[in-house]
Nucleic acid binder design. Sequence first.
DNA 1: ACTCATACTTAGATATACTAGGTATAGGCG
DNA 2: CGCCTATACCTAGTATATCTAAGTATGAGT
Lengths: 95, 95
Amino acid sequence: MVLAILETGSAHGYSIIESLRRESSGLFDLPEGTVYPALHRLEENGLIKSTREMVEGRERRVYHLIPAGHGSLKESRASWQAFSSAVSRILVVNP
Amino acid sequence: MVLAILETGSAHGYSIIESLRRESSGLFDLPEGTVYPALHRLEENGLIKSTREMVEGRERRVYHLIPAGHGSLKESRASWQAFSSAVSRILVVNP
DNA sequence: ACTCATACTTAGATATACTAGGTATAGGCG
DNA sequence: CGCCTATACCTAGTATATCTAAGTATGAGT
């Protein structure tokens, strides 16, 4: 989901948290202790890159999607479709 | 998913693993070390009950869905619908 | 000056999935 | 009859992720 957010444009950690909250209508209200370490992992794994930038008169760590991250996002979308439809088939349709 | 399987009829651990594999077309090929402890947790939490029964000339631990598990399954279905549609909204629709 | 929202970081607790071993039995086959 | 395989169950230990809870810092508004 973080990669999907970044696909629509570079963003810093705090704004990613807000995007997830807003676009999920409040369902994904992720604490910072979840998102920041996740961003560090994504960067460590070479899927995103960060730069320190001045935004609105303030230093922020801005994350950018890089090609490997774009590819990973594409794979994640495919596996999410497979995963969620399998869960739905078992969980929802069964009775 | 285990509760959903049990809703269609009581079953023992090994057959639950097979059901999940079959109904997911092989996607959920869960190892025993995942499913057996999960069954123990579900029983500990009062959602299922087990009895030792002779099935096809062999002792098996057969699990049954009990009322609390039925209620929990209903809740799980609702929260899965909310969760998966939120993920899809963010992950799939975004671009 | 103070408070609040923004912004980032990380140590530790908790939970879960999986690995990798163990035990036991029924049935098929050479 | 002995052996192998599939079935059936169990659990200790490892790896990983989420979250809690703490800390630091700054800009804006009162």
